[in-house]
Design a binder for these strands. Structure first.
Lengths: 267, 267
DNA sequence: AAATCAGGGTTGTATGATAACACGACAACG
DNA sequence: CGTTGTCGTGTTATCATACAACCCTGATTT
C-alpha cells in the first residue's frame, strides 16, 4: 500500500472556503469597497457553518487587507487599490485553475526573460548558466540536487536580464509553482524525461549564448510546454475562465456544506 | 474647526498579537522549520487567551504559508526560507534604473495581457473598457478622474485575460509605477497629450475588440513607449519621497494580556 | 509475527454565553 | 429649541465547553 493516496495536502478548511467565497464576492464587484458585510451570524447561517469558522475566514481576509472590521460596528470591504505587498495564497493554489493561471503567468515572464537575457547576457551569466547545466547533468532526475540546479539555471537567466524586478517576480512565481507541484507529488520520473528536459535547457542556453532573441523565446516556450505536460497540464490554450472546479480528493465530511459554498461562489 | 485628530487607531486583535508572537519565534529561530508547535490548548494557556483566539492566529499564519497543520497531528513550521510575500521597496524605486526596470516589467506584463485579452475578452469586458474610455474622454487630462479611468481601463484589460494572477501582478506593479510617477510630479500636461494618450488607448481597445492579438500587443507597446516619453524616461530621474512610519495607539483593553504577549515575544 | 482494535492526544467544528463597543431613540434638563 | 444623559439594541471580540474526525501508539488478538 502506501501508494500515493494523495496525502490530501491541506484539505481546505471550511474557513478557507468561506474566505475565498467572500473574496470572490469582492473580486466580482458584488461587494464594493466600503460596503458592509453581513453580520457574522448571518454569514454563518447562509454558509451553514459555525460562527467560529466565519470568524477565522474574516480574520484571514483582514490579515490580507481585503476587509477591516470594528467591534460593535461590523466588517467592511477595504480599499483594495493600495496593496503594498503581493502574496499568493497557496491554499487557493491547490485549485487546478488557479495553478494553471499561475503557470501561464510564469510562462510569460520566463519567455520574455529569456529574450532579454539573450540581449543583455554577459560572460559571467553564461558561465553561471553553464555551471547550472553541469549540475543538472550530474544529478539524477528529480533529485533534490537536480531541482536545485534547475532552479539555479532559471535564476541565472533571470539575472542575465539585468532587471532585478524581473528576477524577483520570477523567483517568486516559480517558487509558488514549484511548491504546488511538490505538494501534488504525482509526477513520474524516467531517464527519458531527464534527457528531454536537459535538452530543452541546453537549447535555451545555446540561444541565449548566441544572442538569438527569438530562438531563446522559442526554446523557453518549448521548455515550458514540456514542463506543463510533465506536471499534467495539457498544453495549448491553458487557462479557461476561472471557475471553482476543483478535482482534488473529495471532501469526506461536510460535503453538503462545501458544495453549497462552492455553488454560491461559482456564480 | 475640523481639527483632524487621528481616528482612533484601534489596538490589534488578540489573534494578531498571538500570530505575530509566534511569527517572531519562527523568525528568531526558536522554532525551526519542521518543528511542531505546542498544541492549541497549550498556546492558549501560555498566552492566557482562549483556544479560539489561538485558532484565528494559526489560521492566519497558515494562510501566510508560515505553518501547516494536520488534523489529529498538530501544527508544524513550514519551509519559510523563500519569501511568501513580495514587496517593492519605495526607496530603491527612487533610483532611475530601478524605476526603469519596473517600467520594463510592467510593459512585458501589459503587452502580454493585451494579447491574452484579445483572445479571451467577453462582451462584459468590452463594455467595461468602453466605459473607462468614456471616463477618460469626459475628464480633463491629468485630473484625478482621468487617472482613475486610465487605471480602470488597464485593470479591465487585465481582467479580460481571465487570469486573476495576471491582474494581481499587473495592478501591483502599475500601482508602484504610478506612485513613483506621482512622487516625481514633474510631468507637464497639455491638450495634445490628452488627445494622443486617448488615441493610444482607443487603438488598444479596438484591437482587443477585434480579437487582433498582434495588433493589441503593438498598440499596447506604442502606448507604453509614449507613456515612457511622457514621464521623461530615457534619461529620467526620480524624486524624493517619504515613508511615514506610523505608530499604533496603545491598546485599551486586555492590556495585561497584550503586554504579556508583547513581553514574551519582544525579547 | 502480523493484523486488529482500543485508547489517548490533537485539530476541526459547533454552540452558547459574556464583555466591549457603536449608534440611534428618547426622556430629562437648561 | 438645543443639549445632555441614559438606555436598549445590534455587532464584534472573546471565552468556555463539547463533540467529531483524525493520527499515532501500543496492547490485544489471531
Amino acid at each position: 500500500m502506501t501508494l500515493k493516496l494523495d496525502k490530501v495536502n491541506r484539505g481546505p478548511h471550511l474557513s478557507t472556503l468561506v474566505a475565498s467565497s467572500i473574496s470572490r464576492e469582492i473580486a466580482q464587484g458584488r461587494l464594493k469597497t466600503g460596503d458592509q458585510l453581513p453580520t457574522e451570524q448571518a454569514l454563518a447561517t447562509t454558509f451553514g457553518v459555525s460562527r467560529n469558522v466565519v470568524r477565522e475566514a474574516i480574520a484571514r481576509l483582514r490579515s490580507e487587507g481585503r476587509i477591516w472590521s470594528q467591534q460593535g460596528r461590523g466588517a467592511f470591504v477595504a480599499e483594495t487599490n493600495n496593496p503594498t505587498v503581493l502574496t499568493i495564497d497557496h491554499e487557493t493554489l491547490q485549485r487546478a485553475d488557479s495553478f494553471r493561471n499561475l503557470f501561464e503567468l510564469r510562462g510569460i515572464l520566463e519567455v520574455q526573460a529569456a529574450a532579454l537575457a539573450a540581449k543583455r547576457r554577459g560572460d559571467a551569466d553564461l558561465k553561471a548558466m553553464g555551471d547550472a547545466l553541469s549540475g543538472m547533468r550530474a544529478a539524477p532526475y528529480g533529485s533534490v540536487a537536480w531541482l536545485r540546479s534547475d532552479l539555479e539555471f532559471h535564476r541565472t537567466v533571470a539575472e542575465a536580464t539585468r532587471n532585478s524586478y524581473m528576477g524577483q517576480f520570477l523567483v517568486f512565481v516559480s517558487e509558488r509553482v514549484r511548491e504546488s507541484i511538490l505538494a501534488a507529488g504525482n509526477q513520474q520520473k524516467s531517464d527519458d524525461m531527464a534527457r528531454i528536459t536537459l535538452g530543452e535547457h541546453e537549447r535555451i542556453f545555446a540561444a541565449i549564448r548566441n544572442g538569438d532573441v527569438e530562438g531563446a523565446q522559442a526554446a523557453m516556450r518549448d521548455h515550458l510546454a514540456g514542463a506543463a505536460l510533465r506536471v499534467g497540464l495539457h498544453e495549448g490554450e491553458a487557462a479557461e475562465a476561472e471557475s471553482p472546479a476543483r478535482e482534488v480528493a473529495s471532501p469526506v465530511r461536510h460535503s453538503r456544506l462545501r458544495k453549497a459554498i462552492r455553488g454560491q461562489a461559482g456564480g
